[in-house]
Amino acid sequence: MAVLPGLSEEERRRNLHFVIVGGGPTGVEFAAELHDYFQEDLVKLYPMVKDLVKITVIQSGDHILNMFDDRISTFAEKKFTRDGIDVQTGCRVVSVSDKEITMKVKSKGEVCSIPHGLVVWSTGIGTRPVVRDFMQQIGQADKRVLVTDEWLRVKGCEDVYAIGDCASISQRRYPLSQVDSQMKSLPATAQVAAQQGTYLSSCFNRREHCKEHPEGPRRFKSSGQHEFLPFRYKHFGQFAPLGGEQAAAELPGDWVSMGHSTQWLWYSVYASKQVSWRTRVLVVSDWTRRFIFGRDSSRI
């Protein structure tokens, strides 16, 4: 669109202004990948608009990646500055139109508008209608997500379980490790949902086993009706790809890693978490083709 004839430079700049709202891991990764896509691939096809591309990240907090260690936030902001990615912190978006995005700067109390060609919204998730309707039926309409007990059962519903982003554990009755106490409000990540799914399936399987073999020894202490230990989330760390073959990682034990070596660690973890060897081979082959031939722009 930016290279169509008859457009003014102002219109070209607006078409090539990409705004990412939300400075969390998803928004930061998208901004980094978009920057690499332009610098490594698209400039070869459209060299005439190389200097017109602009990427802006809008974050309501004081720093991007504010759920990470301060060292990672600082490293990411400095890298984005070197890459020419504009990071606007302390700004809250109040409206979005087809050509402008309006935001309020907290420090100044001013409202300003900037033109855009594309807005990517990455500030979080909302409740699905089916979950929201269910919450109203069970008296949880005033909650942000479904409230469950330590066994992932929805409060007020004995045989309904909820895991993942749509639910939150209300309280714990057992002493927790330091990691568990820090993760009382569990992050909306696949890591949490995967552990909850594994835990819940294990509970269901053992429950059937107890029914079939009631005379067998009980592995867990019972307080009347509960036969299993409550769910405990084990945090294995988190990664944030920053583009340019660099990444940042925050791992258990207060270990922070940043740079090119961390990117290769991220590749290893990402490939190992695939569901089958078929998908691992496909993912690694895609990476290899990109390294050798670049990205396939015809599929975008």
Rank of each mutant, 00 (worst) to 15 (best):
S73V: 01
V21F: 08
K78P: 00
G6P: 03
V93I: 13
L152S: 02
Q136M: 13
K155Y: 05
S201E: 08
E29D: 12
Y161F: 14
G61H: 02
D83S: 12
C91E: 07
E110R: 10
F231Y: 13
G243H: 05
E29W: 00
W255D: 14
Y233P: 06
E100D: 14
F30C: 13
D41S: 14
I72E: 02
R172W: 06
Q140S: 12
K108W: 10
V21D: 09
R232M: 10
S202C: 02
R128Y: 14
D83K: 08
F293H: 11
K99S: 09
G259P: 01
V275G: 01
F75E: 02
S202R: 08
A247I: 00
G244L: 02
R153Y: 08
L42K: 09
T127G: 04
P25H: 09
S97D: 14
Y46F: 12
W121T: 03
V154L: 10
I72C: 04
C203A: 03
K108L: 14
F75C: 01
I101F: 01
R299A: 06
S73I: 03
L242M: 15
G6Y: 05
A247S: 15
T123P: 00
V119S: 01
Y199K: 06
K78C: 04
G237W: 07
P252W: 10
A167L: 07
A141F: 09
T262F: 09
V283P: 01
Q195W: 04
H260D: 04
E40R: 12
T262Y: 10
L152A: 05
P187N: 04
L242S: 07
F68M: 14
Q246R: 15
S181T: 13
R82W: 08
R295E: 05
F134V: 12
Q246S: 09
R144W: 06
